[in-house]
Amino acid sequence: MSARAFLVRGLLAGLLAGVATFLVAYAVGEPQVGAAIALETISSEDSGGDGHSHSHATEGGSEETAEVSRTNQSTWGLLTGALAVGVALGGIIGLVAAATMGRLGRLTPSQSTALVTLIGFVAVALVPFLKYPATPPAVGSGDTIGLRTSVYFGYLLVSVLAAVLATYGAVRLRERVGTYAAVVGGTAAYLVVVVVTGQLFVTVNEIGDFPADTLWSFRLASLITLATMWGVLGVALTGLVGRLYAAERAVAERKALAATL
């Protein structure tokens, strides 16, 4: 089983995950984005300014429409973004799964692929989201976008590095203390690092008087969308790798049998 085989299947799984993510994001996420934009527009009108309006008046008094309409953003733009992220993420996970094959104890290729995807979801998506959850368009000051971006990616880097080191440590400890103790130890080490680091990293709170129910719905939809991307990717890639492994194993068994005749 070559790295190329993993990469091709990762790209295919990522494509499927992108399509599924688009459907979920359009059905679950876009209504929450629309509600946030509507609140932003109302707030802007009440304050007497144009805020983040999607059209701007020209000198002649006519309106210049936005280059990308809201309809295109929520359809073709969303689909393009979901497919691009899905394919890129699938390729990365495929290569990581290929690199770790045979290095995670006695796990089969499909089992190690599933484990890599699960660790990736926790370290890349879930834990950073819990520290710095997604915010709707109407929340957050433009003056702090640089800070918010920096601390998010900084915490993401810490989470990924901690997950890699914890996994490596668990694999090394497995032969000494057993699988159960190694998994518990690795998990505990990861949690200690991300929890302590999360306390040290700056807390961003720019919600203001934004409605709590709308914010909760938006963040829940965002988390569901993330889970869809990683879940479909993991299931599809694990299945594809499992089929490839079974096929190659069957060929090897037939060759071994033929050699004994």
Rank of each mutant, 00 (worst) to 15 (best):
V124T: 09
V124R: 04
E64Q: 13
A84F: 13
T80H: 08
T113D: 04
A99D: 03
S62P: 01
I37C: 00
A88L: 14
I92F: 11
L83R: 00
Q32R: 13
V24F: 03
G18Q: 00
Q111I: 01
M101R: 11
G120N: 01
R70F: 08
E64A: 12
S47D: 14
A57Y: 14
A57K: 14
I37F: 06
Y26R: 15
G14D: 07
S112D: 02
A13P: 06
T113V: 07
I119Q: 02
S43W: 15
A38V: 13
T21S: 04
V24T: 07
G51T: 08
V124W: 09
T71G: 14
T71A: 15
V122Y: 00
A97H: 08
S62M: 11
V19N: 01
A20H: 01
G94H: 06
L83H: 02
P31F: 01
L16V: 13
A17Q: 03
L83T: 08
L83K: 10
A125N: 11
V87L: 08
D46W: 12
E59F: 12
G48K: 03
G105L: 04
G61W: 13
T75D: 08
A88P: 12
G81C: 05
V24R: 04
S44F: 11
G77M: 07
G94I: 06
R103S: 05
A66Q: 11
R103I: 01
V19D: 02
G48V: 04
T80C: 00
L79S: 02
V96L: 15
L95G: 08
N72A: 15
I42Q: 14
A20S: 08
G81T: 06
G60E: 07
I93A: 13
A25F: 05
Y26M: 07
T113R: 03
H54C: 00
E45R: 14
L95W: 11
S43P: 03
A35D: 13
